[in-house]
Design a protein around this nucleic acid. Structure first.
Lengths: 236, 236
DNA sequence: CGTCTCATTGAGAACAATCAACCACGGTGG
DNA sequence: CCACCGTGGTTGATTGTTCTCAATGAGACG
């Protein structure tokens, strides 16, 4: 895969402590707890946990990219979302994982057994409060990500994904930084709910319209943030 | 509107204590706490809380139907979901509501100031655990509701909504009970992310194919649960 | 009895899926 | 070394689906 750079930095991008803003370092009790655990490394395309397996661990990712997905009875794959450094996985599941998590690029993660987390939570109000915050955040970002897409055309969905990725990396489109797409067109299609071909055509269209530029399929420069935003946010 | 029947019963339909199953009475601490609060009644089409207002109360609905929505910049309305007796609202918001809640039918709700809830939570592990459970549930059901729809055709989305409503009412399609649609075609369209016309055509198609029957637009009988399920779940 | 809102249907245009071909690249094995 | 294969990306042609615009019907309500 288009990997090899395994960027491992210590900065952790996530929402602020419990509020809203982005690309800030999270330092809640749960983050600190997880970062004290031992780290596991995954090569690309490895399964981190599998749907229907007992949900016996939670994860905090330190580097790499992870996709969470499941399958429709007809065989179509639904990608629920992508996880980046600073994101948690496993917090919201019940007895069993309801999604499969797979590394898309080489990934490092802190992991904590769920049983331990439960014990710690029952003794620490701070930890439990932090957990509530994280769940709320996850719920909000889930809503922000999926709801609007249900009402948007293909081009707009692609624009929205690019904006999300850019925001995560703190890219505003003014400086020369590129958005690195660690996932394949197929991953993107299964996330956006459109076909691979339509994803391609959308990228081509965005390039033609000079909203973005790219040297290779996985490096995208945002050339016109204003128009890309208004497309992605649903202005048009 | 198609109102006037204001069915007010005391039964509360919701997921089990913290697990998964449906149409069971919830008796968690939070539910009990809310049910001890004073009840507010809303006529149809009243705003219960408004997007961007300070989120200073949580609600447990006892009767009626509520729609939660917000608007895209282009003016399209996104209906995030419908709330029924036994459902909570307001648990997942931060400082401000991120959705507007409006009664679709005459509605009764127990309400508790958020500040009070916070105090109570900080003194009761049971309450906080229950809150975590509810948030997890909300997250799971949000995912179950919206993710697959992103990948489904219009007919399947309508089928999915009918299945969801039937499940909420404990209707399995064998006995003669009808699904009562308290929301308008427009509400449904804005929830499913399709146009009103397509919603109509889907209902017509489902009737032609004898998956459902109806005497009036708001009363639907499920005639072939097997086929409706396989359509809604994404078998085809 | 007009006027609303909501629901339904039709016709045409716009959109996205599918099927099919092709290119670029990175192995791998002869 | 190079032919071969597999994967991922892109583009074209065709088909099917959905949207939009427009008209009409059915009730509710003043």
């Amino acid at each position: 895969m288009r990997v090899g750079h395994a960027r491992f930095d210590d900065r952790i991008f996530d929402e602020t402590s419990c509020g809203s803003a982005n690309s800030t370092i999270r330092t809640g009790p749960l983050t600190l707890l997880l970062r004290a655990q031992k780290m596991i490394r995954f090569a690309s395309k490895q399964i981190i946990f599998h749907e229907d397996d007992p949900a016996d661990a939670v994860f905090l990712f330190a580097s790499g990219t992870v996709g969470q997905y499941r399958f429709l009875p007809n065989g179509r794959r639904l990608v629920a979302g992508f996880l980046f450094p600073g994101d948690f996985a496993g917090l919201s599941f019940g007895e069993r994982y309801s999604l499969t998590a797979q590394s898309i690029a080489p990934t490092a993660a802190y992991s904590l057994p769920r049983a331990e987390l439960n014990v710690l939570c029952s003794h620490s109000t701070a930890l439990q409060t932090d957990l509530v915050c994280l769940l709320k955040q996850e719920l909000v970002s889930e809503r922000e990500a999926h709801l609007p897409m249900l009402h948007q055309a293909a081009h707009a969905r692609v624009a929205r994904l690019l904006l999300m990725l850019a925001r995560r990396k703190g890219i505003d489109g003014c400086n020369g930084e590129a958005v690195q797409l660690t996932m394949t067109r197929s991953d993107i299609a299964d996330y956006l709910g459109i076909s691979v071909e339509t994803v391609c055509r959308s990228f081509t269209k965005l390039k033609e319209d000079r909203l973005i530029a790219s040297s290779s399929p996985d490096r995208i420069w945002i050339k016109n943030m204003a128009r890309l935003s208004s497309l992605g946010e649903g202005q048009e």
